[in-house]
Computed example of a mutant assay.
Amino acid sequence: MNPTGRLLRGESGSRLVLTRTFRAPIDDVWASVTESDRTARWFGPWEGDPAPGHTIKVQLAFEEQEPWTDLRIDACEPPRRLACSTTDEHGTWSLELLLSESDGTTLLEFVQHLETEEGIGEVGPGWEYYLDLLVASRDDSQRPDFDDYFPSMTAYYEGLRR
């Protein structure tokens, strides 16, 4: 497995960007990242009112002990943009999913707006894993094994900071 993430720096800070491409209409990919029964297949189910400004509860189904966490919906612009944030012991996670379609192929850009670039060697492999879980959930292929991502991708992601 080869890491795909890029680290982009700008006036508003650093962003970690990972992409996946799907031979599917944008509305179908949007459903995979927003409908609870479909997010349950690759990230975890959620409950609550997913309107902008509201907080939903998401179960991290592929983490140890499958904990539930609060996730604030910061923006929802179907079927092109979902922005959300959460805070945990590691800080605030500000995330965006950006979708675009061309000729029946949908590009998904996953963006994490970083408070700091520290820890990117752990964060990057984790997002690679989750996005590949998304791919597997859509094409009914075998789920990836986290051990194929971490720690083998750590050096690549740490190298992005240079």
Score class of each variant (00 low, 15 high):
residue 3 P to D: 02
residue 3 P to Y: 01
residue 4 T to Q: 00
residue 7 L to Q: 04
residue 8 L to V: 15
residue 8 L to K: 11
residue 9 R to G: 15
residue 11 E to A: 13
residue 15 R to Q: 15
residue 15 R to E: 15
residue 16 L to R: 07
residue 18 L to F: 09
residue 18 L to A: 04
residue 19 T to I: 13
residue 19 T to E: 15
residue 22 F to H: 07
residue 22 F to L: 14
residue 24 A to M: 02
residue 25 P to E: 13
residue 30 W to G: 09
residue 30 W to H: 13
residue 32 S to K: 04
residue 33 V to Q: 02
residue 34 T to W: 01
residue 34 T to A: 02
residue 35 E to P: 00
residue 37 D to H: 13
residue 39 T to Q: 00
residue 39 T to C: 00
residue 40 A to H: 01
residue 41 R to S: 10
residue 44 G to E: 04
residue 46 W to P: 03
residue 49 D to E: 15
residue 51 A to F: 01
residue 51 A to C: 00
residue 51 A to M: 06
residue 53 G to Q: 10
residue 55 T to C: 05
residue 57 K to G: 08
residue 58 V to C: 09
residue 59 Q to M: 08
residue 60 L to A: 12
residue 63 E to F: 08
residue 63 E to I: 05
residue 69 T to W: 10
residue 71 L to M: 15
residue 74 D to W: 12
residue 75 A to Y: 04
residue 78 P to D: 12
residue 79 P to T: 03
residue 79 P to A: 05
residue 80 R to C: 03
residue 82 L to H: 03
residue 83 A to R: 15
residue 86 T to L: 15
residue 88 D to Q: 13
residue 90 H to Y: 15
residue 91 G to D: 03
residue 92 T to Y: 06
residue 94 S to E: 07
residue 96 E to C: 01
residue 98 L to E: 08
residue 100 S to A: 13
residue 100 S to F: 07
residue 101 E to K: 09
residue 101 E to L: 07
residue 102 S to A: 15
residue 104 G to K: 08
residue 105 T to I: 07
residue 106 T to I: 09
residue 107 L to S: 14
residue 108 L to V: 01
residue 110 F to P: 07
residue 110 F to L: 06
residue 111 V to A: 07
residue 112 Q to G: 04
residue 112 Q to K: 10
residue 112 Q to C: 05
residue 113 H to A: 15
residue 114 L to P: 12
residue 115 E to M: 08
residue 116 T to M: 06
residue 120 I to K: 01
residue 121 G to E: 04
residue 123 V to C: 10
residue 125 P to L: 00
residue 126 G to A: 02
residue 127 W to S: 00
residue 129 Y to L: 03
residue 129 Y to Q: 00
residue 130 Y to S: 04
residue 131 L to H: 03
residue 132 D to W: 05
residue 132 D to Q: 06
residue 132 D to Y: 10
residue 132 D to A: 11
residue 133 L to E: 11
residue 133 L to G: 06
residue 136 A to C: 08
residue 137 S to L: 13
residue 138 R to N: 07
residue 140 D to I: 03
residue 141 S to Q: 04
residue 142 Q to A: 14
residue 143 R to V: 02
residue 144 P to V: 01
residue 144 P to I: 01
residue 146 F to P: 03
residue 147 D to Q: 12
residue 148 D to G: 06
residue 148 D to Q: 08
residue 155 A to Q: 07
residue 160 L to G: 11
residue 160 L to K: 06
residue 162 R to P: 02
